[in-house]
Design a binder for these strands. Structure first.
Length: 485
RNA sequence: CGGGGCGUAGCGCAGCCUGGUAGCGCACCUGCCUUGGGCGCAGGGGGUCGCAGGUUCGAAUCCUGUCGCCCCGACCA
C-alpha cells in the first residue's frame, strides 16, 4: 500500500485563521447544514444537518433507555400562572419567554408562554401522578423544541427556537436525585467523547451560572478551535425547589408525607455547532464517522464505458458496505467531474472517500482518501470492507486524540492574575486557577477579562493553602476559566 | 440593548462619491467536448438594486425612516 499527500485546493470558505466566526457561518451554509429563515433568530435545519441531529438523537436515546428512562411528550404551551410558581425560575426565564395572547381573534383569559424549558408543566403533571413512594422514581425524557427570545443569535449555537432533549426525573431521596444528576452528566460526557469525538471537562457550575431554580448545576465544557469554550450539556439537581412550588408530594415508607427530589438535564442542537468548531479545518467540515450522515462517499471515475465496467463494481462495493451497517453514498452524477466531487464531499466532512476507476479495476484495487489527514492510499479489493471499517474507527479515534491534544495545548495553570490576563488577551483557552467562592470575584474577573468560570471540574486539584486569583483570599477550589460562547 | 459594518440575479461582488433607467465572476439552462483534484468552447435565461416615504423631469445612486444579517461589548443550551 502506498500513500500520497493531497494538495490544498481553493474553496469558497473564509479561512479559519482569518476570521473564525465567518468561517463557521460559511461552513454551516456551504455544507448545507442550516440556513437562515424569514423569522428573525430562527434557522432552518437542512437535511444534511438534520441527519446529524438524528444520529445524535439515536446515540443519546440509546443511552437514556439503557439507564432506565422512557420518552413522553408534554405541551408546547404553558399557562402563565404555572410558570410563575417558582420564584427563581421565573426571574431567570421571564426576559426570554415568548407569549401567546390570542387564540384566533379572541384574547385569551390567561396568557400562555411558549415553553423555554418544561420543568413547570412537567412538575404539574408529576404532582398528579405521584401518591406513594412506590410511584418513584419517575424517569422521563422528552425530545422537543423550545423557544427563548434571544437578543443575539448564531446558527446552531444560539437560536430563538431550538431542538433538544430534556430529562425530568423525580426521586424519593436527595441522594437518589444527586446520583441521577451525576449519572446523566456522565452519560453526556460518554456520548460527547465516544460519538462526537469531543473531549469534555465535567464539573459543577458556580452559583452565578447555575440553572434558574436549581440547587446545583453540572456541565460538560468543550474547547473550540478558536480557544473559546462551549457549554455542551447541563444536568441539574433541582432539590425540592420545584416539588414544593408544584406540590409534588408522596407518602414515604415511614408513612410521613414528603416532597420529591427532582432533576433535569438537557443537550441541544448546539452540539452540532460544537462538532463543527472542534473538528473543522480550512477545507470545511470534518465529521466524526459515528455521526457522519455519510461515512463513505464513493466516486466512480467515468471514462470510456464506465457504466458497464466501473459503475457495477462501485454499486457492489456500496451494497457490501451498507450490508455491514455503514452509511454510504455512491455519487454517480454525470453533471459533475470527479475533482469537483472530491472537493465538495471534503467540504461537507465525509470521513472517507472511495475512488474507483478503470485503472483500479485492472489492478483490483480502490483508492481510499481520509478527510482528517488528507492521505490517499491504494487498497486491494480483497478484504476492502474490513479495511474501510478499520479506517473509520481510526478516524474516529484520531479526531478525539487531536481534539484532546489541542485542548491540552490550550489549557494553562496559573496563580497570578497578571499572567491570567495576559493569557486571555493572547492565546485564549482554558485557564485553571484558584478561586475563593463568592460571586463578586467571579464577576470582577469577567468584567476585566471577559473570562468566566466554565465549571469546577470533578478532577480539580485541592485548593487548600492556595489564594484566590483575584482577591488573594483563601481559595476554595481550582476553577476552569475561559471565554465562552 | 449600545458601538461598527453590510443589504444590487441562487452565491460573491462592482456601480453610489459626481443622479440619466444595471454589470462582472461563479452557479443555472441548451449543445458539443471532457471526466484520476472544483474541465473547455459556443449560445441562453434570470434582478420592481432589502422595504417604505421624500427630493428631482428622472433615484441603485441624494435625504428620512424602517427591517434584516455580520462583527465587537451587557444577558443565555
Amino acid at each position: 500500500m502506498s500513500t500520497e499527500q493531497i494538495p490544498d485546493l481553493p474553496t469558497e470558505i473564509t479561512p479559519q485563521s482569518q476570521d473564525f466566526g465567518r468561517w463557521y457561518i460559511d461552513v454551516v451554509r456551504r455544507a448545507e447544514l442550516a440556513d437562515y429563515s424569514p423569522v428573525k433568530g430562527c434557522m432552518v435545519i437542512r437535511p444534511y444537518g438534520y441527519a446529524m441531529w438524528e444520529l445524535i438523537q439515536q446515540g443519546l436515546d440509546r443511552r437514556f433507555k439503557a439507564t432506565g428512562h422512557v420518552n413522553a411528550y408534554f405541551p408546547l404551551f404553558i399557562p402563565e400562572s404555572l410558570l410563575m410558581r417558582e420564584a427563581a425560575h421565573v426571574e431567570g426565564f421571564a426576559p426570554q419567554v415568548a407569549w401567546v395572547t390570542h387564540g384566533g381573534n379572541e384574547k385569551l383569559e390567561e396568557r400562555l408562554v411558549v415553553r423555554p424549558t418544561s420543568e413547570t408543566i412537567i412538575g404539574t403533571m408529576y404532582a398528579k401522578w405521584v401518591q406513594s413512594w412506590r410511584d418513584l422514581p419517575i424517569l422521563i425524557n422528552q425530545w422537543a423544541n423550545v423557544v427563548r427570545w434571544e437578543k443575539v443569535t448564531r446558527l446552531f449555537l444560539r437560536t430563538t427556537e431550538f431542538l433538544w432533549q430534556e430529562g425530568h426525573t423525580a426521586h424519593e431521596t436527595a441522594e437518589e436525585a444527586q446520583e441521577e444528576t451525576l449519572r446523566m452528566l456522565a452519560v453526556y460526557k460518554d456520548f460527547a467523547e465516544q460519538e462526537l469525538a469531543i473531549p469534555v471537562v465535567d464539573g459543577q457550575k458556580t452559583d452565578s451560572e447555575k440553572f434558574a431554580g436549581a440547587e446545583r448545576t453540572y456541565s460538560i465544557e468543550a474547547l473550540m478551535r478558536d480557544g473559546r469554550a462551549l457549554q455542551a450539556g447541563t444536568s441539574h439537581n433541582l432539590g425540592q425547589n420545584f416539588s414544593k412550588s408544584y406540590d409534588i408530594k408522596f407518602q414515604a415508607r415511614d408513612k410521613s408525607v414528603q416532597y420529591v427530589h427532582t432533576t433535569s438535564w438537557g443537550v441541544s442542537t448546539r452540539l452540532i455547532g460544537g462538532v463543527i468548531m472542534v473538528h473543522g479545518d480550512e477545507g470545511g467540515l470534518i465529521l466524526p464517522p459515528r455521526i457522519a450522515p455519510y461515512q463513505v462517499v464513493i466516486v466512480p471515475i467515468p471514462r470510456g464505458n464506465w457504466r458497464e465496467t466501473v459503475l457495477p463494481r462501485a454499486q457492489a462495493i456500496r451494497d457490501e458496505l451498507v450490508a455491514r451497517g455503514m452509511r454510504v453514498f455512491l455519487d454517480d452524477r454525470e453533471s459533475q467531474t470527479p475533482g469537483w466531487k472530491f472537493n465538495e464531499w471534503e467540504m461537507r466532512g465525509v470521513p472517507l472517500r472511495l475512488e474507483i476507476g478503470p485503472k483500479d479495476l485492472e489492478k483490483s484495487q480502490v483508492v481510499l482518501a481520509r478527510r482528517d489527514t488528507r492521505e490517499k492510499s491504494f487498497v486491494p479489493m480483497d478484504g476492502l470492507a474490513g479495511r474501510v471499517e478499520e479506517l473509520l474507527a481510526a478516524i474516529q479515534r484520531a479526531l478525539y486524540e487531536r481534539a484532546l491534544a489541542f485542548r491540552e495545548e490550550h489549557t494553562s495553570t496559573t496563580d497570578s492574575y497578571e499572567e491570567f490576563k495576559a493569557i486571555m488577551e493572547g492565546r485564549p483557552g482554558f485557564v485553571i486557577a484558584p478561586w475563593c467562592g463568592p460571586a463578586a470575584c467571579e464577576a470582577a474577573i469577567k468584567a476585566e477579562t471577559q473570562a468566566t468560570i466554565r465549571n469546577i471540574p470533578f478532577s480539580s486539584a485541592p485548593a487548600a493553602g492556595k489564594h484566590c486569583l483575584k482577591c488573594g483570599g483563601a481559595a476554595t477550589a481550582h476553577a476552569w476559566f475561559a471565554k465562552s460562547y
